[in-house]
Write a protein that binds this DNA or RNA. Structure first.
Lengths: 339, 339
DNA sequence: ACCCCCTAGGTAAGCGCTTTCCCGGCAGGC
DNA sequence: GCCTGCCGGGAAAGCGCTTACCTAGGGGGT
């Protein structure tokens, strides 16, 4: 492990000179020296210790990202946007998966704080639980008070900037579309109860129901895990609990795909006998049969905007909140109920 | 930004004592003091500076992961396995996306080296280009010489441990299956030319062709970008260049899905008029219509094994190389050629 | 010819921790 | 009652860098 001092000794100069050269600081250095030092760096294969650099400079370079799970396409797409912007700014990104565990999320905030990251981006961490939210908020504020920036994707109930996807309006869009088509018996495949993404989207659906003179009864809503198999199981439950069902709204596309598989298995034609609508507009939605009607959220763009906020200089104008609009995308999985 | 010294002052003890307490070092400390210090830590909301800790301790904690793109389902699944193991070991994971750019990959190796990560896991970085491979190898060796561990997913041509997916045998499996069904005019949608994943899988396909008394001509192989749209475009090219084609092998499932979309668009029945086989067995493969025949690679398990290797203590027995077997999965997208 | 100032490089003081070494005091053994 | 040994705690030396400050020359202006 060659150090700066080794290089300095080798080149016969002081460590200050070496430091200046490798950081190409504005201070002028004679070409001869520069060459000699660079040669020494190469010979010794010197790689500066980033920890020492950060400590000495007191600057913050990397940015931390906490998501539920990068392997979930929803977060994968957001992450892609986050990464792109960070990379453009020459920032290293540290990605942490919380796996929807609030405690793990809290631990990661501490960790990223301890590592002096320049910013923390939280994606998808809207918890219904108030104590959790308060603790998270406390940690984030502390982090901010030491100079860190925070940017949240989801409900804006934390310190820091936010880009909030229109989940409630999106839910409304889905419900409204179904009711307009003439459906009256609608089943909902919801996500985990403790996430605001679930409660918000569901609230939108309920608003649409009300507006059309209906309501969603307890057995019309089944909670699942935001993944394909959860969706398939929930669809089965829904079918069993609601004999006259003509439409299903899933709160994300993964679950909708699972529901579709369940329906196919039972020989229920979509959209002939059952309409199905998803949420998010994942890339795969267009490739299933029939292609999935859904509510589109500009995920990658959300990531881009969140990282842009996280990297902006100065927050003199206080926290910024941006909204990302939901848009209805009608494809082949929805239609009017049969006669 | 409260520091250790602040806490010490506040509690009226030396920094050494505070350090011992927060790290609960084996050295005994009187309970009264401990309480006082802990109280001070809480009041000041002290969060230790991880950079300073790493510098002082000279230990390595985080582990770095370099993948092409986490938002690609292939890498998402591998990453999930990597993460799980790392988390179980209490390690922070730093994920870096190289976007298949060798230069960026090299830069990331330096970066992770500089940050004193305990290990670097490289996923998917098999480049056909020899100079690139050599440079990568040089950097990895240097990193190893300073105590870092390296673990590679893919061809084993680097220093360090490796888990190598059986790409060539997998390609053979796909080709063999097609020829056995009676196909003779087979088109191939390959990945980027500069990746060994492409060349290895293609080599397997060629071996199968040869064994069955055929060969793959230049216009039977089209290179694309390992993504859906690349696959769709390649399928169109293949169709145009090979009038009598009865089967297509795509070198990954994303491209196969794209090809499927292309065929559907043109009203070509799968598998009636055209058989299609993919590679990887992505989660979505079972949800398209018809479900995709493919070659399964245990991706998450590959991730698990790679991280396990990366985290193992001591390498007294030299680098370890493990293989991950490919397995043929026949579903609905393949059949015998029509009459 | 003198002075001043600018330039190139070195010296050394940190950055926030950890840890070795040392010291004072107490208990126990003889 | 004195010495030994142990225990709790502090002082201080780093870890590998950066950078403010200082110094020694050398060139130009008058």
């Amino acid at each position: 492990m060659a150090t700066l001092a080794d290089v300095a000794r080798r080149a016969g100069v002081s460590t200050a000179t070496v430091s200046r050269i490798i950081n190409n600081s504005p201070k002028p250095v004679a070409d001869a020296l520069r060459e000699r030092v660079l040669a020494a760096v190469a010979e010794l294969q010197f790689v500066p210790n980033a920890n020492a650099q950060q400590l000495a400079r007191a600057d913050r370079t990397a940015v931390g990202v906490i998501v539920h799970d990068v392997s979930d396409p929803y977060f994968a797409e957001i992450t892609r946007g986050l990464q792109r912007v960070a990379t453009d700014h020459g920032r290293l990104v540290i990605i942490c998966n919380s796996y929807r565990d609030p405690e793990r999320e809290l631990a990661y905030v501490d960790l990223l704080h301890a590592h002096q990251t320049a910013a923390i981006v939280l994606a998808g961490s809207g918890y219904v639980d108030a104590p959790i939210t308060a603790r998270l908020d406390g940690k984030l504020r502390l982090y901010q008070s030491t100079g860190g920036r925070v940017s949240v994707i989801g409900r804006h109930e934390h310190a820091g900037d936010a880009v909030v996807p229109e989940n409630e309006p999106g839910g409304y869009l889905a419900g409204d579309a179904l009711y307009r088509l003439g459906h009256t018996a609608i089943g909902v495949i919801a996500g985990p109860r403790h996430l605001t993404t679930t409660t918000d989207r569901l609230a939108g659906l309920r608003r649409a129901a009300k507006e059309h003179g209906h309501r969603l009864g307890a057995r019309q809503v089944v909670y699942a895990d935001f993944d394909r198999n959860g969706g398939a199981a929930a669809a089965a439950t829904l079918l069993a609990q609601n004999p006259g069902l003509t439409a299903i709204a899933a709160l994300n596309d993964s679950m909708a795909v699972g529901a579709l598989a369940c329906l196919r298995e039972r020989g229920i034609d979509v959209p002939g006998e059952m309409s199905l609508i998803g949420f998010d507009d994942m890339p795969i939605s267009v490739d299933v049969t029939p292609p999935l009607s859904t509510v589109r959220l500009p995920l990658e763009e959300i990531g881009v905007r969140a990282m842009t906020l996280a990297l902006r200089e100065g927050d003199r104008d206080g926290p910024l909140v941006e909204h990302a609009a939901a848009k209805l995308v009608l494809r082949g999985s929805t239609g009017a109920p049969r006669g």
